[in-house]
């Protein structure tokens, strides 16, 4: 991304840029968790979790069929809550 330096007539302010950077950081953290529970625990790392048994099978199976969905839910609600807070911190909420 090569955003040109903000000129006076550009509407985006420094606050807006700071807000966007903070937002992208939160998204990155959430997506790392998103990938670890689904592609990681559910598929690629499942052999490593084979030792941890859950209800007649192993933890990887649980993550693939239920755990990842529960984490996805937590992630979306966390993001909504965190972003609504961030909106107010930067004064960019819709009031």
């Amino acid at each position: 991304m090569t955003d040109q330096a903000s000129k006076p007539e550009t509407k985006a302010t420094e606050t807006d840029r700071g807000y966007w950077t903070a937002n992208v950081r939160i998204i990155a953290v959430c997506l790392v968790i998103w990938a670890i529970v689904s592609f990681g625990f559910g598929i690629l790392l499942r052999p490593l979790l084979a030792g941890i048994s859950v209800g007649g099978t192993d933890l990887g199976f649980w993550f693939a069929q239920q755990g990842s969905i529960l984490v996805f839910l937590a992630l979306i609600f966390f993001y909504a809550w965190r972003m609504n807070k961030l909106d107010r911190e930067y004064g960019v909420d819709e009031g």
């Binding site: 998204i27 959430c30 997506l31 598929i43 199976f61 693939a64 069929q65 239920q66 996805f72 909504a80």
Partner: peptide, 21 residues
């Protein structure tokens, strides 16, 4: 069995992308 887990993760995990991106 386990092999069909793709549907469970895929059709729900997309909502994370939708909500965040």
């Amino acid at each position: 069995g386990y092999g069909a887990s793709s549907f469970l993760m895929g059709w729900t995990g997309g909502y994370v992308l939708l909500a965040l991106l």
